[in-house]
């Protein structure tokens, strides 16, 4: 029998873990979880999952983004795809790269003051996050996909299929 694929959920809300966990378990995945960035890093290291799903606001405001960036910058985790799960609205575009679009949105008076921009290109399915951290700087990093809260099994399962390693 094929070995089950492993998914790590990092979220400070146990109930989100329970709900998402039961959906994923039922769909045949092996689910592990962590409640903060620190535990998340430990689980990534120990279990090397096939995919990670990260919440944004945990004990600190951008904990999920910090974890995402550590995953991107650390060669140890570079091959683990991750999704960002949040209830922030997603901006969609069909032109240019998402990073260039982030720059465009930052010039637009309607968006320039937003703390976080989540941008998805609907043509080529690339996605990225541009956020103003507490130090006042803006950061950009690419992500595989966004997942909207509350969890919806019908939407999340096909996305996972597409990206899981």
């Amino acid at each position: 029998m094929e070995k089950k694929k492993k998914i790590l959920i990092v979220d400070d809300d146990v109930d989100v873990i329970t709900v998402l966990g039961s959906i994923l378990t039922k769909a045949g995945y092996d689910v592990i979880s962590a409640l903060n960035k620190q535990e998340g890093l430990e689980k990534l290291r120990a279990e090397h999952p096939n995919l990670a799903i990260l919440d944004v606001v945990m004990t600190t405001h951008y904990e999920g983004f910090e974890l995402a960036q550590e995953m991107l910058n650390n060669p140890e985790f570079a091959d683990i795809p991750f999704f960002i799960q949040s209830s922030i609205d997603i901006l969609v575009t069909s032109k240019a790269s998402v990073q260039e679009m982030a720059h465009e949105f930052r010039k637009d008076p309607n968006f320039k003051d937003l703390q976080v921009l989540m941008i998805k290109n609907v043509e080529d399915n690339t996605a990225g996050i541009d956020y103003k951290a507490d130090d006042g700087k803006t950061y950009f990093f690419p992500v595989r996909d966004f997942i909207r809260k509350p969890v919806d099994a019908k939407k999340i399962l096909p996305e996972i299929e597409k990206h899981i390693r």
Partner: peptide, 26 residues
Amino acid sequence: SVLSHELKSPLNAIEGYLRIMKEKQV
């Protein structure tokens, strides 16, 4: 913005549980 996050979290959790129950998932 922090407050709205705090209010959304329990709603998301409860809505998630209700969906599971509605679909009789377990």
